[in-house]
Design a binder for these strands. Structure first.
Lengths: 174, 174
DNA sequence: CATTTTATGTCAGCCATGTTGACATATTTT
DNA sequence: AAAATATGTCAACATGGCTGACATAAAATG
């Protein structure tokens, strides 16, 4: 016989590029990691009587000062009615402010207030710490691999935009 | 002066292990990746009139045949009332079945029916494809880095259990 | 310039899925 | 026999998605 019924030990013979088991593990790990990752800011948000929806808005407005409502909707992939609810609260309570667009006066450009920036920092701190620790633990090169895999998980048609967006936003952080 | 105010070009001098920009990127990418990753099964679920909560139950019951309600609750981190709602529907419609525990007759061990396994496979297929493509694109070693980083993102107190669980479940997949 | 399109806001109501609190039942443990 | 455990269930509520309809101001267009 040419091929044994079971692969020998750890020899990678004619196996698929990524084995099914590994794939299932990867999918499951993503669930667990995300579960705990997003749990970090919850306690902080509760103190402000905000939820995760507020967090997302604060994050993306912070990362993209002057972002329009339409752009924010495209990032979050929710309806304007859903966004309006949390955005209204953030504005009323002084975490976000609007400014009429100069070229296009229909647009409402969004900015964090000083208070908003403070909240953003508080929310980001534990997540940064968690990710930093994980990347360090995984050793050099892990950051790059991580970045590549995550980017490839994004829908192909949105990938270029996401790439541009994270680069642009990083450059804008004065 | 000993230390220049700005690090020179790309020379990794006395920089933090993971720079702030990279961290922010990583956090943001996780959002985008997860957003698209979980969007895959939505269309399929809608055909069955199920939601993401059903997906999670089907996944973890499929991965852990004979899992108890308590274990499932510990994985999902939701209340038993929330679980009961979706579990009831899955049982009524013949995707999940219960069996009284043999050692402990208070327990209700959960299993997928044939129909349930079929649904599980359908839901998993696009996610597997997406992850497989991403890992391939990221090259050899990416899978290992990915695994390590994700595992390190899990709460420290739950890490051992998650590790054990994904290993055990993989072994159990007959 | 009149018309259409666009960016945004808002009202009203529905649905999925999370929460708390209270209580019931069967079974196991002490 | 009593206490603890695993599960189920009822009721009420909150968050954050959704659809549909309609309003306004500003820009773009023929």
């Amino acid at each position: 016989m040419v091929t044994p019924t079971k692969p020998l030990a750890k020899t990678p013979a004619a196996r698929p590029v990524v084995e099914a088991d590994r794939l299932t593990e990867a999918i499951e790990l993503l669930f667990f990691a995300y579960r705990d990752f997003i749990s970090d800011p919850d306690e902080i948000l509760a103190r402000y009587d905000f939820g995760r929806a507020h967090h997302r808005v604060v994050h993306f407005v912070g990362r993209n000062p002057g972002i329009t409502v339409a752009e924010l909707l495209n990032i979050l992939r929710i309806t304007k009615q859903s966004l309006a609810r949390v955005l209204k609260q953030l504005i009323e309570r002084g975490f976000v402010e609007q400014e009429t667009g100069k070229q296009d006066r229909r647009q409402r450009l969004l900015y964090l207030t000083a208070q908003g920036r403070e909240l953003e920092q508080r929310l980001a701190a534990p997540q940064r710490a968690r990710v930093a620790a994980a990347l360090e633990k995984a050793g050099p090169g892990a950051g790059e691999a991580w970045r590549t895999v995550l980017l490839e998980l994004v829908n192909e048609e949105d990938r270029a935009e996401v790439e541009r967006r994270i680069a642009k936003a990083a450059a804008e952080q004065r």
